[in-house]
Every structure is written in C-alpha cells, then in structure tokens.
C-alpha cells in the first residue's frame, strides 16, 4: 500500500471518529474538524518526529503541534488517539463530565499530546512562536507546527504573532491556515472581508505556500516540502494556505457554515458515516 493510501485511510477513520464523537456528545464542531483532517493526518502520520508513548509537555527532542483553533478538538483528539498517545476507547468520553477530552483542549487533565489550552481564538499561534523560539534557544532542531483558522485570523493577536515571528526570524515554525472560507455567521467574506489572507501573510514578512487542494494528500505533502525548502534558504516562518472545504467528506456538510458548531442527529450521523469507509475500526 502506498503511503498516500495509508494516509487517506487514516483520514477516513479520523473523520468517522469526529462525526461519532460529536454525535455522542450532542455538541462540538464537526465542520472545521473535517476540513482540517487531511493536514493534521499528514502531520501526525507522516511529517512529525514524535514519540506518543513517551510524550512530555516540554516537547524536547520532538516536533510540536499547536491547534490554535481549539474548537477542532475532536480532530486533535482522534489524531492523538490514533497515533497512540492514549487509548482510542477514550474518544467516547469526549465532552462528558470527568473526561480528559474537554470541549476545548486543556492541559489540566494531563491528556498526553496537548501542549497548551486553546479555544479562545487567536492565541495558539503566539504560543507556537514562543515554543519555536524556545527550541532555538535550546539548540533543539525539531520543528513547530501550528494550525490556524481563516475566521480565527480576524483576531488582531494573529497579526501580532505574525509580526513578532517575522521580526525574530522564527524559521523553525511552519503554520497552516485552514482556508475554507466559512465561519459561524456565514462566509468569511460576508462576515468581515476582505480576506486576502495570502497577501497579508506575505506583507508581514512570511513566506507563503498555497495548497490548491488542501484536502488532497499529495498537494499537502508537496506544499510542506516547498515550505521546508524555503526555510532551508531563508530564515523566515512559513504559512501554508490550505484551500479546503468546510465539512469535507460529508456531502450535506460540505461548503456551508451550518455545521460549524452543530452536532448531527443520530440518523444524520448514520447517513454521514455511510459516505466514509471504516478503515481502522471505530472506537
């Protein structure tokens, strides 16, 4: 089996996990989680050097991933569980009282793989920048990755982080924008345009790579490869703009803001699961 096929199979299972977790919890954010599934799969199952069984929060001698858009927690939890950070069966506790899988990622439950709480938007990129700086100070040559939402990029702090990372030449950081064009109240253009996100990142001194299909494994892999090549010759952070589809993989969830923060009913979940093959076994 090719590595691409292996990644596609994992992404299928993660999408099933997301839908089932959110349905069982009767709450959560399926739309963005499904649109970012492919890049997070590539990171955890192809790019990142990490040791799920021996994780510690310092991220020492390992790559680190920060989910700035913390509402995509079901995606993060599934990727972590499927990587072996904790038992897959624990996904069933998502958003339930006493669970380590809080509505938004938390550190006080000691869930392996979570470096920092996120959910109040616009903050995770700054933490990732700090972690990347820390790695440089420590002479640790591992990378820091961060996923940011396009709606989230309306937060001013994102641009404070952009400016800081550029000024301090944080060149061990590769960030991704889930550029699906949707947020709770509508399309990003309707809510507060203009978007021009790629141009904004360039203006802030970052190198920018665009993945024309941000839900396609080959496109994501080649975009990251290009980001690494740019970083090898120029001391700059890189933003990979992923042109994705909100709700990707479920026909009635695709391309709409309707499913940003809404759980499907059991029968809707069943209809959705019929469109995504079970590849690794449901939790």
């Amino acid at each position: 089996m090719s590595d691409i096929q292996r990644l596609k199979d994992i992404a299928c299972q993660i999408r099933r996990d997301i839908l089932r977790m959110v349905t069982m919890a009767k709450s959560g954010h399926p739309g963005g989680s499904l649109s970012s599934t492919d890049v997070v799969t590539v990171l955890y199952f192809n790019k990142m050097q990490h040791d799920p069984k021996n994780w510690n929060r310092s991220g020492k001698d390992a790559d680190m991933f920060f989910l700035s858009c913390g509402h995509e927690s079901p995606l993060l939890y599934s990727a972590l569980a499927r990587s072996g950070y904790f038992p897959v069966s624990e996904l069933a506790t998502f958003r339930k009282i006493g669970s380590r899988l809080q509505g938004h990622p938390a550190t006080d439950t000691n869930l392996p793989g979570v470096f920092e709480a996120s959910g109040s938007l616009g903050q995770g990129l700054s933490v990732a920048v700090g972690a990347a700086l820390g790695k440089k100070l420590n002479g640790d040559f591992h990378k820091v990755y961060c996923l940011v939402g396009d709606g989230e990029s309306q937060e001013g702090q994102i641009w404070e982080a952009a400016q800081f990372a550029s000024h301090h030449k944080v060149d061990n950081l590769i960030a991704f924008t889930d550029w699906n064009g949707q947020q709770i109240d509508g399309t990003t253009e309707e809510v507060i345009g203009p978007d021009h996100l790629d141009q904004r990142w360039k203006a802030f001194g970052w190198n920018v790579v665009i993945a024309e299909d941000g839900n396609n494994m080959e496109d994501i892999l080649s975009a990251i490869k290009l980001a690494e090549e740019l970083q090898a010759v120029e001391p700059k952070p890189v933003m990979v703009m992923l042109k994705t589809v909100m709700g990707k993989g479920v026909d009635f969830m695709e391309g709409t803001c309707k499913w940003h923060g809404k759980a499907p009913k059991p029968e809707e979940c069943e209809a959705a699961l019929k469109q995504i093959p079970e590849t690794l076994g449901d939790f």
């Binding site: 929060r57 310092s58 991220g59 020492k60 680190m64 470096f115 920092e116 616009g122 903050q123 995770g124 700054s126 933490v127 990732a128 920048v129 700090g130 972690a131 990347a132 700086l133 820390g134 790695k135 100070l137 420590n138 640790d140 001013g156 702090q157 404070e160 982080a161 400016q163 800081f164 000024h167 301090h168």
Partner: peptide, 25 residues
C-alpha cells in the same frame, strides 16, 4: 540572546512567554 522585544503587542507577548516556558525557560 535571552531578551525579546515584542513591540506594542502585549497579547502576543503573554502567549509567546507561555510557549517559551514549555521548553523549560
């Protein structure tokens, strides 16, 4: 090498500090 000017952008400064602390700083 251990001092970082964040400019007039306090929000980012707080979170960058949080990130630095993860690495034992």
């Amino acid at each position: 090498e251990r001092f970082f000017q964040a400019g007039i952008a306090e929000a980012n400064m707080i979170n960058v500090a949080a990130g630095l602390s993860l690495n034992g700083k």
